[in-house]
């Protein structure tokens, strides 16, 4: 049996990126929502993501790692084209990551400063990732119109992350903060919907190939369930949040799970639009792939290690299952 190794690695990379977007998405989202809460609540919000953010960001390293391992040629092109947004994202992630630790240890105005940096870093990372996404779907075109488009996608993605963050907080918090999280969920779902709509409509408009992939008969009939399901999930989040608010439902996990589905559907749509290109209309996965021997060497390790990674990630989430508590180092 011969394995289409570049295809396998494309799937793996896609899964890593999807895992990153959802996992770091909720903790970035919590960071974006931070200024909306009062001080004691802020500590609880950060506590709800404390044990997870390190591991969540590791999926980003895995995603870019697979790009680098499996598609070294595209790695260079993509990261050079996205030089400035990548740098912006990295600096934002640095600030956010260290602010997390520093804010727990600093005092007085230092703590206020680190809190602000935590928010700025979270928002900055989300916007930078949106700009990168816009670059990928437009084939790294440049110009004022594309810059504006990038910024809008960035805001849309920030809204979508805020949605994940708010619905995460619905699960992890209680009392007053829980009520706020429900209100934030309803507001964020509007931003997220706008972001999804913007990118779904713009991508086919700027690229004829993508247009043909979606809007030709009979494909459009086969593909129609995807946007319909996305819209249904978005509406479902709003309804579920409203039901929780009114006390007519106790299933607090529903909004978060539906938000995850929104990301999965949107990701599937994007993947379909781009495939088989890594750099739209220029470089396919086969053109960019590394040597077969190298891919095989990595695949063996991945097949052994990735299930373990998933296993202990699940274990770690189970340890911190239930409502968040104040973080202590357990001394």
């Amino acid at each position: 049996m011969t394995l289409d190794l570049p295809f396998v690695f494309m799937v793996l990379m896609g899964l890593a990126i999807l895992a990153y977007v959802i996992l770091d998405g909720f903790d970035l989202g919590v960071g974006i929502l931070l200024p909306l809460a009062a001080r004691p609540d802020q500590d609880m919000m950060v506590a709800s993501i404390g044990p997870f953010w390190d591991a969540n960001e590791t999926w980003l390293v895995l995603g870019v790692g697979i790009l680098l391992v499996a598609f070294p040629i595209a790695h260079g092109i993509i990261l050079s084209s996205l030089y400035l947004p990548v740098a912006l994202m990295l600096i934002a992630l640095i600030l956010r990551g260290v602010a997390f630790e520093f804010r727990m240890k600093a005092t007085g105005w230092h703590q206020v400063l680190w809190n602000r940096l935590f928010f700025v870093g979270s928002l900055g990372a989300a916007i930078a990732q949106g700009i990168m996404l816009a670059g990928v779907v437009t084939g790294f075109a440049s110009g004022p119109g594309y810059a504006l488009f990038g910024l809008l996608v960035g805001l849309g993605l920030a809204g979508a992350y805020a949605l994940l963050g708010a619905t995460w907080l619905v699960i992890k918090t209680e009392g007053d903060l829980h009520g706020r999280a429900l209100r934030w969920s309803k507001a964020a779902v509007v931003f997220a919907a706008a972001g999804v709509a913007l990118i779904s409509l713009t991508t086919p408009l700027v690229n004829a190939g993508v247009m043909a992939k979606w809007f030709t008969w009979p494909r459009i009939a086969w593909l129609a369930p995807l946007p319909i399901a996305t819209a249904a999930a978005l509406a479902g989040i709003w309804i579920a949040a409203a039901r929780l608010q009114a006390g007519r439902s106790r299933r607090e996990w529903v909004p978060f799970v539906l938000s995850v589905w929104v990301f999965v559907f949107a990701f599937a749509g994007l993947a379909y639009s781009l495939y088989p290109y890594l750099v739209l209309d220029r470089v396919t996965i086969w053109q960019a792939a590394a040597a077969e021997g190298s891919l095989r060497f990595v695949l063996v390790g991945t097949a052994i290690v990735l299930p373990m990674v998933i296993g202990y990630t699940v274990f770690s989430y189970r340890v911190f299952w239930g409502k968040a508590r104040e973080l202590t180092y357990g001394e």
């Binding site: 591991a55 202990y312 911190f320």
Partner: peptide
Amino acid sequence: AAFLGIMLFG
């Protein structure tokens, strides 16, 4: 990264 969370806060 995964076990750090448990080590620090668990």
